[in-house]
Design a protein around this nucleic acid. Structure first.
Lengths: 333, 333
DNA sequence: GTGAAAGCGCTAACAG
DNA sequence: CTGTTAGCGCTTTCAC
C-alpha cells in the first residue's frame, strides 16, 4: 500500500545512539548486552514501533519460524481435527502456519514441498500419498513429520486404529455376529491397510469371518456401491473405511429399505462431525486427531532445535476407541 | 537439514557465462534479453535445478506471493467452504496460503495482521470481529478484503442472506405459520444483524410476527437454551442463527419430546456438512461460500496489481437460497 | 542487450 | 560489552 517505510533496526540504532548489531543483540541475545543499554534500546524500539522483518531474518539466519501442513483434501472433515491441532500448536509456538491442499496427488505433494521448501522450516504431511521411497528420499533434504502414516525411520504421529478395530470386533462378536465385511478405502492408503490387518486378526481371534471388499471412494458418494456390494456378500455387519463412506452406506441402506441395525449393522471410523447426527447415529472409532496434529508440530520443532543429536526419529502413537451408537445391534438370525 | 547449499542465481550465471543480472532478467523479463542468451540461461538453470528463493525475492522486490486468511474459528464447519475456496484460488494464482485462527477475538485479529504484515501481500478476513473503525484504519496500511462482512469503502465478498431469509418467510407463510422467532447469534456479528433485518422486513410484508431472542452461542451447545427460549415464546417456527445452533435446537426438542415439524418447525443457515444427515434433515439457507472465498482472493490480487486506479473498492455479493428438507412443515393449529 | 554495483533488513563473525 | 564489516539471494538502476 502507501508503504510509509517501516522502521528498521537502523532507525532504532541511530535513535538509541548504538550500532545496529547492538540492537539486534538486545532483541535476540538479551544476555550478551549490557542491561542498561539493553533497556534503552528496547525502549527506543518500542517508542518507534519497531517490528522485525521476518523475511530479512529468515534470509540471513535460515530460521523462518514457519511450517507448512500438506493435506490431501482440505474439504474432508476427517482432517479438520488434525489441522486444528496443528494450527493451534504452531500458533502457540509462535510459528506461522501455511496450509496447502495436495488434491490427493503424490506429485502435487512433492511439488508443493519443493515450492515451499525455501519458505518454511519443515512440513507436516497429513495422510501422505507418496511412496515410501520418495518420502524417505525427500526426508533427507527436508524436515518432514508424518501424520496418520508411518514410514520406518521417519518421525510421525498416528492415531492407531488397532485398538478401535479390535473393539469393533469384540462389540460385534458380543452381539452375535459371525462375520463382517470391511468396505475398504484406497488400497494405497496406509490407514486402510492398518485397519484391515487389525480387523482380520481380531476376527480370527474371535472365530469370526472377515472379508474385504473394495476399494471404494472414501466419500459419501461411495456408499451406494459399497452398501450393495456388502449386501451382496451376505454380511450382517459392514465396517466402512471411514464415516463418510459409512454415512453413504446408511443412506443406500435406507433407500433399499434395509433396516439398520435390524438386518445389518454399520460401523465407521473417525467420528467426524455429523457422525452422531445421522439416523441412526453412527457407531464409529474415535481418536485424538487434534492431539495427533499437535504432536506432529511438536516433533517438527523438537527435531529442528536438537541438532540431530536425536537417537531415532520419534513415532508417536495415540490410541483410539469405539464409540457405540445406534447403527449396530444384535445380528439378524 | 544437511543443507547442501542450494544453487543460486550466481551459480547459474557462472555456468552460463553471463552476469547474475542477466539471469534475473532472463527469468523475469524475458523480453528484455536476447532470445538466444535467454534460451541458454534457461537451459542452464534447468540443468542445475535452480529454484528462486521466495524470501530473497520478497525482501528485495516487496512481492511476497503470499496471502493470509484469518478465521475466527477454524473448527467451525461454516468456514470450511470459504477456506477451501480461498485456498484453491490462491493456489491457482501461485500464491502461498497462510491460515490463522483468531479465536473470535478482535485483538487477536489485529495482532495477527501486524505480526504477518511483513510476510504477506494481503489478508482475507473471514467474518471479522473488529470494529468498523479499526478495520478501516488498518485497511489504510494493509491490503484487506472482507468475507461475510461489509464495511463501507472496503472490498468484500459476502453471501447475501437476504434472499434466503425472504425465502424462509415465504416458505413458512405458505405453510400457515403466523409468527417466527429468530434465535440470534452474537449481536456484534454482521450476518446476524443482516439476517434479522431481512427476516423482519419479509415477515412484515407477509403479515407475520417476527421476534428476536438471544444472543445465543452459535454452536450446538447453544441449542438447549435457545430451544427452551423459543418454546417459551410460543412460536411455531424457530429460525436459528446457523445450522450448528439449529442442530442443537433439534436435539433439545427431541429430548423434550416436541415433534418436529409437527409442533415446531426449525430452520438454519449455512447448509453445513451434516445438515442433511440429522434427523429430521434440516431446512436451511445455502449459499456459495466457496465462491465467496475465491472471490475474496480474486479481489485481493486484483487490488494489488491495479495500482490504485480502482474507482471504488468492489463489493461482491453472492446470493443464497433456501433448501427445504424435513424440519419444516405446516403450522400446528 | 548486458554487466557492475548497490542495496532490501537483518545476523554473525571478528575485532577491539 | 559493543562497533565494524560482510554477506543471505535477489532485483534494479546506471553505465557501457
Amino acid at each position: 500500500m502507501s508503504s510509509p517505510r517501516r522502521t528498521t533496526i537502523y532507525d532504532v540504532a541511530r535513535e538509541a545512539g548504538v550500532a545496529a548489531s547492538t540492537v539486534s543483540r538486545a532483541l535476540n541475545n538479551p544476555r550478551r548486552v549490557n542491561p542498561a543499554t539493553r533497556e534503552h534500546v528496547l525502549a527506543v524500539a518500542e517508542r518507534l514501533g519497531y517490528r522485525p522483518d521476518p523475511l530479512a531474518t529468515a534470509l540471513q539466519s535460515g530460521h523462518k519460524a514457519t511450517i507448512a501442513m500438506l493435506v490431501p483434501d482440505i474439504t474432508n472433515p476427517h482432517f479438520f481435527g488434525t489441522i486444528r491441532g496443528a494450527e493451534k500448536r504452531a500458533s502457540e509456538a509462535g510459528l506461522t502456519f501455511i496450509l496447502a491442499n495436495t488434491e490427493e496427488s503424490a506429485d502435487n505433494e512433492r511439488n508443493q514441498i519443493e515450492r515451499l521448501s525455501r519458505s518454511v522450516d519443515g512440513f507436516v504431511l497429513a495422510a501422505s500419498r507418496m511412496q515410501e521411497a520418495t518420502t524417505r528420499e525427500l526426508a533427507r533434504e527436508y524436515n518432514l513429520v508424518l501424520v496418520n502414516r508411518q514410514v520406518e525411520g521417519l518421525p510421525s504421529a498416528v492415531v492407531d486404529n488397532g485398538a478401535g478395530s479390535r473393539q469393533i470386533v469384540e462389540h460385534l462378536a458380543s452381539l452375535g455376529h459371525r462375520s463382517l465385511v470391511y468396505l475398504s478405502g484406497p488400497h494405497r492408503s496406509w490407514p486402510a491397510a492398518q485397519r484391515w490387518r487389525a480387523l482380520r486378526a481380531a476376527a480370527e481371534a474371535h472365530g469370526m469371518t472377515a472379508r474385504r471388499l473394495g476399494p471404494f471412494p472414501p466419500r459419501v458418494e461411495g456408499g451406494g456401491v459399497a452398501a450393495d456390494a456388502g449386501l451382496g456378500a451376505g454380511a450382517t455387519a459392514l465396517v466402512a473405511h471411514n464415516d463418510l463412506l459409512a454415512i453413504g452406506v446408511l443412506r443406500r441402506l435406507a433407500e433399499r429399505g434395509v433396516p439398520v441395525p435390524g438386518q445389518v449393522s454399520v460401523v465407521g471410523y473417525d467420528d467426524i462431525f455429523g457422525a452422531d447426527l445421522c439416523a441412526p447415529a453412527l457407531t464409529t472409532v474415535a481418536g485424538p486427531h487434534e492431539e495427533a496434529g499437535r504432536a506432529a508440530v511438536e516433533l517438527l520443532t523438537r527435531k529442528g532445535s536438537l541438532s540431530r543429536s536425536q537417537p531415532a526419529p520419534q513415532q508417536v502413537v495415540l490410541s483410539s476407541h469405539l464409540v457405540i451408537r445406534r447403527s449396530t445391534g444384535p445380528a439378524a438370525r
